[in-house]
Nucleic acid binder design. Structure first.
Length: 568
RNA sequence: GAUCUCUUAGCUCAGCUGGUAGAGCAAUACACUUUUAAUGUAUGGGUCCUGGGUUCGAGCCCCAGAGGGAUCACCA
C-alpha cells in the first residue's frame, strides 16, 4: 500500500536524496568513535579541548553564517556552535550552507568534532570543525521547549501516543527516561541485596501445565508437539519451593507473571513480581529482612528513606509498624472477628454495609472487611499479620492459633506491596488445604486454586521450615518514582492493537459508483450525474469532494450549468 | 463489563446560536557571525477519529462504531 506522506515527511525524504547527490551517505555503516558523553563534558568541562560526541540534533538556532544547535545523547544535551568558515575552511561552503542549514533536521543523528569553549553568554559549547551525518530522521519529532522558568511548552503528553510510541516519549521527555533508569536501579539494588546474602537467582517455567501459586485467571496456550494446554504463569511460588526441597538455602526470581483479568491504572496483563524463599526462617525474620531491603533500595535511588508520592511523604525507614489483622479490623470497625462463625461474620458484614454472597467463606468475608474498611488507612509502610487460614492455603498455621496463619502483607499508601508466609511444609495439611480450595471452587469461588500433585509429592520428600515473600516490583517502582499509573513504569504497557493503513488511496464505494458512470460519458451535466447515481445529498457531496481531491474529476462552469468531466 | 469524558495541522491547543477551518511551536523561503522558548518578514500545510442521519448547509445537533483517559467492579 502506498504510504501517504505529510508535507514535512516529503521534505525530509527529498533532503535524503539531496544528501546522497552531494555524496553523503545518510545511513553510514562505519563505527563512529566518540570520546565524551554530554555529562562527561559538562562535569569535567575544560576550555580548548578537542572532543567528539554523537547524538540527535534537538534544537537549531540559525543566524546566517553561524548557528547554535543542541546534540542529545543518552545522558543529556550539549550545545554546539556551527560557524560557516570554521566548519568549511576552503571555498566550498556546502557542508554549512546546504548540509547543515538545509538538509539536516531536528531529530537527525550527527557526530561532531570540535573544540570546547564558553560563549559570551557563558554557555559551555563545542566549536564544531567536523560534522558527520549518522542517521537521517524521516518523521518530525514533537518539539518540546523549556523556558527560563523551567515551564514546558507543547509537551508531548497524550498518554495514548506516549505509550504506543514509547521511543518518541523517551526521546522527548527526560523524566520518562529517568523513570526507567530508576526502575533498573531498583531491580539492581534488590538483586545485590539478595546476592550479598548468597541467595541464588533462578529461572523457573513461564509455561506451566497447572497455573499454581496464586488465585487468578490464567492465559491458556497450546503446545503443538505435546498436544496439551499450557498456562502462562500466574505465580512461580510452587516452583521456588520445589527448589528449597532440592536443598538450596535461598532462591529468588524476578518473575514476569500473566493474569487474564481487567486492566486499569494499577493492573497490566503482564507484570513483575520478585519472589524469594529462604530455608530455616519464619515470617518474623522475613519482616526484618523485607524492611531492611526496602530501606536500602529507597536510599539507593533517593537521597534518603523518604519518598514524596502525590504530596504524601512515605518513609521507608525500618522498622515498619506491625499490626495483626484482628487488631486492625477491631480498630477500624469495632468488630472482633475472634472465634466468629461464618454466619456471624456474614451478618457483621451486612451491618457495616459490605456486600456478601453465598459463595464467600470465612476467609473471604474477613478479607472483604479488611479490604473495605482498613486497607486504605495504611499510608506509611505497615505489616498486617496473621491472616485467617481459609484465605491462605499455602501458609503455615499460626504457632499459637490454628484458625490463623503466619502470614503478613506489607501495606504502603493504602495498597498491598508485599505478601509473605512461614511456608506450609506439612504435606498432609497442604493436601487438605488444596481440597478445601476445590470445595470453594465448587461453591463458585473462581479464584480458588487447583491441586498440584507434583508439588504435594515434593513436600512429601520434606521441605525445611521456610519463609517466602513476594513483592510487586511494578508497584514498588510506582512508589519510588512518584507515578500513580502502572503504564508509566512499564516500557510497553499493553494496549489495544493500533489499526494501520485503514485508509488507502482506493476509492470508496460511492466514489467508485460516480466515477464508473462518469467514465462512460467522459463528461456529464452535474445534476444529471447526481440523479443517475441516486446518492443522498451528503453521500453525493462527499464522493465528489473525494474524487476532486484525488484529481480524478473536474467541475467546470459554463453558461448552461455545471459540467463534470474525467481528468485524463 | 458499567458510567462519565476526550479525539481538529507534525506537536500543544482554540473554534461563538449550525454559515468558506484558527493560533503558537515545527516546516518552507529570505535576512542576520555568540544565540538559548533566538529574532524579523513572507509562504505552505487539514479525511475536524470512522460510518450513517437531520439540515439549503454539520468540526458543532442526533444515532451507531473505534481508540484513549477517569471513576467503579475484579485483581497484584
Amino acid at each position: 500500500m502506498m504510504q501517504i506522506l505529510t508535507e514535512q515527511e516529503r521534505i525530509r525524504r527529498q533532503s535524503l536524496v539531496e544528501l546522497r547527490n552531494l555524496g553523503i551517505e545518510p545511513y553510514p555503516a562505519a563505527e563512529f568513535k566518540t570520546n565524551r558523553t554530554t555529562t562527561e563534558l559538562k562535569d569535567k568541562f575544560k576550555e580548548g579541548e578537542e572532543v567528539t560526541i554523537a547524538g540527535r540534533l534537538m534544537t537549531r538556532r540559525i543566524m546566517g553564517k553561524a548557528s547554535f544547535g543542541e546534540v542529545m545523547d543518552s545522558k543529556g544535551r550539549f550545545q554546539c556552535y556551527f560557524n560557516r568558515d570554521v566548519l568549511c575552511e576552503g571555498e566550498d561552503k556546502d557542508l554549512y550552507n546546504k548540509v547543515f542549514k538545509k538538509l539536516l533536521d531536528i531529530g537527525d543523528f550527527i557526530g561532531v568534532t570540535g573544540t570546547t569553549f564558553i560563549t559570551q553568554t557563558g554557555e559551555q559549547s563545542i566549536e564544531v570543525k567536523e560534522l558527520t551525518v549518522l542517521s537521517k530522521s524521516l518523521k518530525p519529532l514533537p518539539i518540546v521547549k523549556t523556558d527560563e522558568e523551567g515551564n514546558l511548552h507543547d509537551a508531548f503528553n497524550d498518554p495514548e501516543l506516549r505509550y504506543r510510541m514509547r521511543y518518541v516519549d523517551l526521546v522527548v521527555n527526560e523524566d520518562v527516561r529517568d523513570t526507567f533508569i530508576t526502575r533498573t536501579k531498583v531491580i539492581q539494588s534488590m538483586r545485590s541485596f539478595f546476592n550479598d546474602h548468597n541467595y541464588l537467582e533462578v529461572d523457573t517455567p513461564v509455561l506451566q501445565p497447572i497455573p499454581g501459586g496464586a488465585a487468578a485467571r490464567p492465559f491458556i496456550t497450546h503446545h503443538n508437539a505435546l498436544d496439551i494446554p499450557l498456562y502462562l504463569r500466574i505465580a512461580n511460588e510452587l516452583y521456588l519451593k520445589r527448589l528449597i526441597v532440592g536443598g538450596f538455602d535461598g532462591v529468588y526470581e524476578f518473575s514476569r507473571n500473566f493474569r487474564n483479568e481487567g486492566m486499569d491504572r494499577t493492573h497490566n496483563p503482564e507484570f513483575t513480581v520478585m519472589e524469594i524463599y529462604v530455608a530455616y526462617k519464619d515470617y518474623n525474620w522475613m519482616m526484618d529482612f523485607t524492611e531492611r531491603m526496602l530501606e536500602k533500595v529507597c536510599r539507593d535511588v533517593h537521597e534518603g528513606s523518604v519518598v514524596d508520592f502525590g504530596g504524601k511523604q512515605i518513609d521507608f525507614k525500618a522498622p515498619f509498624q506491625r499490626v495483626t489483622m484482628t487488631d486492625s479490623i477491631k480498630e477500624h470497625t469495632g468488630i472482633d472477628i475472634t472465634g466468629k462463625s461464618e454466619e456471624e461474620l456474614r451478618a457483621a458484614c451486612k451491618e457495616i454495609g459490605i456486600e456478601v454472597d453465598e459463595s464467600m467463606g470465612k476467609g473471604k468475608l474477613i478479607d472483604e472487611i479488611f479490604g473495605e474498611k482498613c486497607e486504605h488507612h495504611y499510608i506509611q509502610p505497615t505489616f498486617i499479620t496473621d491472616y485467617p487460614t481459609e484465605m491462605s492455603p499455602l501458609c503455615k498455621r499460626h504457632r499459637d492459633n490454628p484458625d490463623l496463619t503466619e502470614r503478613f502483607e506489607l501495606m504502603v499508601n493504602g495498597n498491598e506491596l508485599a505478601n509473605a508466609y512461614s511456608e506450609l511444609n506439612d504435606p498432609i495439611d497442604q493436601r487438605e488445604r488444596f481440597e478445601e480450595q476445590v470445595r470453594l471452587m465448587e461453591r463458585g469461588d473462581d479464584e480458588a486454586m487447583f491441586i498440584d500433585q507434583d508439588f504435594l509429592r515434593a513436600l512429601e520428600y520434606g521441605m525445611p521450615p521456610t519463609s517466602g515473600m513476594g513483592i510487586g516490583v511494578d508497584r514498588l517502582i510506582m512508589l519510588l518514582t512518584g507515578n500513580e499509573s502502572i503504564q508509566e513504569v512499564l516500557l510497553f504497557p499493553q494496549m489495544k492493537p493500533e489499526v494501520f493503513g485503514k485508509q488507502g488511496p482506493e476509492l470508496t464505494e460511492n466514489e467508485q459508483l460516480v466515477f464508473d458512470i462518469l467514465s462512460k460519458a467522459k463528461s456529464m451535466d452535474l445534476n444529471a450525474l447526481k440523479e443517475k447515481t441516486g446518492l443522498s445529498n451528503k453521500q453525493w457531496d462527499k464522493s465528489m469532494k473525494g474524487l476532486g481531491k484525488q484529481g480524478l474529476t473536474k467541475v467546470t462552469k459554463t453558461d448552461e450549468g455545471l459540467t463534470v468531466s474525467v481528468v485524463e
